[in-house]
């Protein structure tokens, strides 16, 4: 009986050692991706608190589901989890918006948007030419935020994260053809906003 207890205690110690080692590796991996994850989430949802919540959720989901997978598989799996959390967030927001519209009386809450402000001036210099520093940063931020979600994700994963087309498709859960289409449209839209107005 005592021997059995000792054996169990030794197994527990070994298990604890393995868990501590795994935790260290996961901590290191998450530390390397968390800032970029936050940037990506913030571009997608806008609000910092929402973005932090998404990053935490994605970390939790990733560790729960994929911690025991080989470490080389961690990056695409983590980005996959974050991407699906971002999509879930947008779905929830869209449902909330629909209900809000349903219950709101006609005309209430309408914003006065200047339609002309959204039209690009072909003579004016592009944001990157006329601005430096903070202004350029704001222009880039605005251009990235203005992209539809899937286009932005395709751009960030393919161009910033450096996944190839197949990897980007795996992370986004779509076909390689879709990735190419999203990426082409994203590049086109960004180029028009950041370069064409020169």
């Amino acid at each position: 009986m005592i021997a059995l207890e000792r054996l169990e205690a030794r197994d527990m110690t070994r298990h604890d050692d393995t868990t501590i080692a795994l935790r260290g590796r996961l901590d290191h991996f998450l530390r390397t991706v968390e800032r970029r994850a936050l940037r990506m989430a913030r571009l997608a949802v806008g609000d910092l608190d929402d973005a932090l919540e998404l990053v935490q959720d994605s970390m939790l989901g990733f560790v729960r589901s994929y911690a025991t997978r080989p470490e080389v598989e961690w990056p695409p799996l983590y980005w996959r989890v974050l991407d699906s959390r971002i999509q879930d967030h947008h779905r929830r927001q869209s449902v909330r918006r629909r209900w809000r519209v349903f219950f709101r009386s006609e005309g209430e809450g309408e914003e006065n948007v200047d339609a002309l402000a959204a039209v690009a001036d072909p003579v004016a210099p592009g944001p990157l030419d006329r601005s430096t520093g903070d202004e350029a940063a704001r222009a880039i931020d605005a251009a990235l935020r203005a992209l539809p979600d899937r286009q932005r994700q395709a751009f960030l994963l393919r161009v910033w994260e450096g996944f190839d087309v197949a990897g980007t498709a795996a992370v986004m859960g779509c076909s390689e053809g879709s990735v190419k289409t999203h990426l082409f449209r994203a590049m086109d839209a960004l180029r028009k906003r950041l370069e064409d107005h020169r």
Binding site: D16, L26, D27, L30, L38, L52, V55, Q56, M59
Partner: peptide, 23 residues
């Protein structure tokens, strides 16, 4: 990255690891 944001990220990471790897 802002120091406050970094701190919040760190806490989020630790919480996620604690919750997922609870012995």
């Amino acid at each position: 990255c802002d120091a406050t944001v970094l701190s919040r990220l760190n806490r989020a990471r630790q919480q996620a690891l604690d919750a997922a790897l609870r012995p």
